[in-house]
Design a protein around this nucleic acid. Structure first.
Lengths: 312, 312
DNA sequence: ATCTATTGATGCCATTTTGGCATTAATGAA
DNA sequence: TTCATTAATGCCAAAATGGCATCAATAGAT
């Protein structure tokens, strides 16, 4: 390890706010960070951090150094990316992140095939339902539902994501088949709720084509679509579900679409997000493979929903 | 060693034109270069050099990489320099270059004192009578006679450098004391000649104050002032000498100034040259020490020339 | 005020990496 | 052709690295 790497290490330490966190991210011992930062200070001949045993603050010199370190990281990244443009065969580590469901159901099959075709590519898949900082953690590609806010990133819509209103047959037996949105609104619902998004109503177009919002009676909230689905399968709630979480439950008769004549507003589409314009070969190929797998116009998950084109 | 260092190594290899020369400059074995460049190619996944066992050429990828490597070197240099601005005590390696005579006679005493005062500063002195590329070789400071042409460098005049016309007493016995420039011009001269400068005449002001040029009869030319001086001491030539090469030869009576009533044009002054606006502390302190040693208005070497103020 | 958990520093040791030497293969020059 | 120079490779000793255990300091909890 030499001065440049030590500067990048310093930058990470400062970004993370502690030696320990930086060490955890790099999967190395804290002592390594401690030693390398000390050594960097020796090399530069300047104290960079004011330590107070349990924390630190930047010195004036340290503040200038991390600015330069950020420039170095950027430049080094550019350099590596430039080299990657010369790769004919994909190689290196493909780092991907997505929500658990997307990863397990839609990326995993593509990845399996991808690594058969390109054995030289290592894959690191991080399934996480919270948003991940793809720049600082160095991801090549992220898959998310909903358009990301960070405009420094590039987001491409890769599949639409329509909504359905679903319930189990047992639910319909219990409550009867609702005929209107107002009737539906009185029935118990399962709905998605995390600290970022919270679904509390159904957006739809009424018979006159006007946009309406119908508040729902949510009795079960979770930040995990599978949980909501399981709850709904138990027959105790209905569920306004984005299509991409549906497997073959409808074909198997475990779930039935309700109010299929109502026109629902389109839900946030699925997006691919990446940090730079010029993707490494491995990323571009995988990206294409995912789009191929998901389908050009009609997303793959809609195959499990008979007559979906005629609904909603 | 990490990717950045390997890139810088590549840059040096390309600049030097061979692995062997780059290895020599760094004082490491060739095998190290060979291994590290190979490893860099592995890391980047691109062939950077087309090898032909006895030489190499850059690939397209390699050409792009060395551009980036040059940027990296520049940025890393800036970073280190920025850190040096925070040094209160001088430290690090002070790298100086000068001509042999300047180094031996005028820098050496200052350096001895300087390292007594600041033992933490290492010194590397390169005496070389050809011009040295102070940027690419990383010198802090250079001392030269004559204003340098490279405008990317900063040059400061640190001492005037007047001329004298000198001869040994034996020379005067042999040829008689010349009374006019015309008489002098007929006598055999020793003169400085290198592939850059070639002294073939004496510039002076005549009795009417007009600029004149008197061609001389040069019978001994060398690119080394000491040689010219020794030749002159032998009594076979006179010598138009810059004052800074004079020791105590005049006081000891070994040399006598000729035609002291002629007003000679001032010779190129002595300059200090450095590559950047913001000098590290060690450099600034040494620079000041040199100026102190040489004297503010009257250069130290003029002390060996009695009544010099009244001559020429 | 006291206790506890966390943080960064330090010393020690096993592992990895590095750099130098010797050898080899290739190639341009004499 | 021969010869000298160059880069690559294998081997080995030396240096650097990373992990573990430990310590001292301190912010936060009780």
């Amino acid at each position: 390890m030499d001065t440049t790497s030590r500067l990048l290490m310093l930058l990470e330490v400062v970004e993370q706010g502690s030696f320990a966190k930086a060490a955890e991210i790099r999967n190395i011992d804290r002592s390594v960070i401690s030693k390398q930062i000390s050594r960097l200070e020796d090399e530069l001949g300047v104290r960079l951090l004011n330590r107070t045993t349990r924390s630190f603050s930047l010195t004036a010199a340290g503040a200038e150094m991390i600015k330069k370190a950020a420039e170095l990281r950027e430049l080094l990244g550019e350099t590596v990316r430039m080299a990657e443009n010369y790769h004919l065969e994909p190689r290196g580590v493909l780092k991907i992140t997505s929500s658990t469901l997307i990863g397990r159901r839609y990326l995993q099959p593509v990845l399996n095939d991808f690594q058969k075709r390109f054995p030289q590519v290592e894959v690191e898949l991080r399934l996480d339902d919270r948003l991940v900082d793809i720049v600082s953690e160095g991801f090549d590609l992220a898959f998310r539902v909903g358009e990301p806010k960070d405009s420094s990133l590039i987001a491409r819509k890769i599949a639409r994501n329509r909504l359905l209103i679903l319930a189990a047959p047992q639910f319909i037996e219990t409550y009867g088949m609702p005929k209107t949105m107002e009737e539906l609104a009185k029935l118990p619902a399962a709905s998605y709720a995390s600290n970022s998004i919270r679904v509390e109503a159904i957006d739809y177009y009424d018979s006159k084509g006007e946009r309406c919002e119908q508040k729902i009676k949510s009795v079960f909230r979770a930040n995990d679509a599978e949980s909501l689905l399981m709850k709904t399968l138990s027959g105790t709630t209905y569920f306004v579900a984005p299509a991409f979480i549906i497997g073959d439950e409808i074909i198997q008769g475990k779930l039935v679409p309700l109010l299929t004549d109502v026109k629902l507003m389109e839900f946030s589409a699925m997006y691919a997000v990446y940090p730079h314009r010029d993707l490494p070969v491995r990323t571009r190929l995988f990206f294409d493979a995912v789009r191929e797998h998901l389908g050009k116009d009609k997303p793959i998950w809609e195959n499990g929903i008979p007559n979906f084109e005629q609904m909603y």
